[in-house]
Structure formats: structure tokens, C-alpha cells
Simulated assay, not measured.
Amino acid sequence: MADYAHTDFAAKGRAEKARRLAAYIWQRDITGAELLALSPATRRKLARAADTNPPSTDETWSRTAQLLDEKDAWAQRHPNHPAAQRSYSDEKILWVKPPVTPWHAPPPGPSEG
């Protein structure tokens, strides 16, 4: 007998979860690569924010990333379609932090004497 994780029912559940996550995450302008680069803790928080029980396998996250990439490609081909518009792009920074530009103090000026 196959274990539950390898049943058609489980696969269908993972696919549905990936679709729900991708729909939420895409609206926040997060790419598949950015999603997979997030820490597991951040991904769990993101899933909870999407009102979805966090996936227990990387398989679901990988499928979610693939769906994000597919939707991005579709949106680029159909830029004027209402479904290609993101409603919550400003929330991306809550999840994906921009790279930090190092701050360097200016070099010391000539001594005044």
C-alpha cells in the first residue's frame, strides 16, 4: 500500500495549495527565484499570510515557484489584461528585502591646523 504522500489525492492537494500560494504571492510581485531564496521560516509566514497551511515539502514550494514564473511570462505577453495587474506590489518589501548598499563614511578631509 502506498503512503499518503504518494497518492493521487495528496498530489491534487499539493497542486491546489501551490495554486493558492502562487495567486497570493504573485500579487506581491515576488518571483519564483525570490520565493525559493526565502528562508523556510519566512516561507511559512508567507503561507500563513495567504491563509494557507504551510507546505511541508519543498515539492509544493517548487511547484509554486514554477507557477509564479508561468504567470510572469503570461503577464508579459498580455500586459493590458486585468489579470496581469498586481494589486499588492508594495507588500513585496515585507517579504523580500532589497539588497543593502554598504554605507561608507567619506574619507577624512585635510586637517585644519
Rank of each mutant, 00 (worst) to 15 (best):
M1I: 13
A2G: 07
A2T: 15
D3A: 11
D3C: 12
D3S: 15
A5T: 09
A10C: 05
A10R: 03
A11D: 09
A11Y: 03
K12S: 12
K12Q: 13
G13E: 06
A15K: 15
E16L: 10
E16R: 14
A18F: 01
A18E: 02
A18L: 07
A18R: 03
L21I: 11
A23V: 05
Y24C: 07
W26P: 00
Q27T: 03
R28T: 06
R28N: 06
D29N: 14
D29W: 02
I30M: 04
I30C: 02
T31Q: 02
G32N: 01
G32V: 02
G32S: 05
G32M: 03
E34I: 03
L35Q: 01
L35N: 00
L36F: 06
A37E: 08
A37I: 02
A37D: 14
L38F: 06
S39D: 10
P40V: 06
P40T: 10
A41Y: 12
T42F: 01
T42R: 06
R44E: 11
L46K: 00
A47F: 01
R48W: 04
R48S: 09
R48K: 12
A50S: 10
D51T: 09
D51S: 11
P54A: 06
P55W: 00
P55Q: 05
P55T: 05
S56V: 13
S56A: 14
T57L: 04
T57S: 11
D58N: 15
D58C: 11
W61T: 07
S62A: 15
S62M: 10
S62R: 07
S62K: 09
R63Q: 11
R63A: 08
A65V: 08
Q66W: 07
L67T: 00
L67A: 05
D69W: 00
D69G: 15
K71R: 15
K71Q: 13
K71H: 12
A73G: 08
A73Y: 03
W74I: 12
A75R: 06
Q76W: 11
Q76P: 02
P79D: 02
H81A: 14
P82V: 04
P82M: 05
A83D: 14
A83C: 08
A84Q: 07
Q85I: 06
Q85E: 06
Q85W: 04
R86E: 08
S87G: 14
S87H: 09
Y88G: 09
S89R: 11
S89P: 02
E91G: 00
L94A: 08
L94E: 01
W95V: 04
W95N: 03
V96W: 00
V96K: 01
V96S: 01
P98L: 07
P98V: 10
P98A: 06
P99A: 14
V100E: 13
V100Q: 12
T101Y: 04
T101F: 05
T101V: 15
T101K: 14
T101W: 04
P102G: 04
W103T: 15
W103R: 15
H104S: 12
H104V: 14
H104Y: 13
A105I: 03
P106R: 06
P106D: 07
P106L: 07
P107W: 02
P107V: 12
P107Y: 03
P108Q: 12
G109L: 11
G109M: 05
P110K: 11
P110D: 08
P110M: 08
S111V: 15
S111T: 13
E112V: 11
G113R: 10
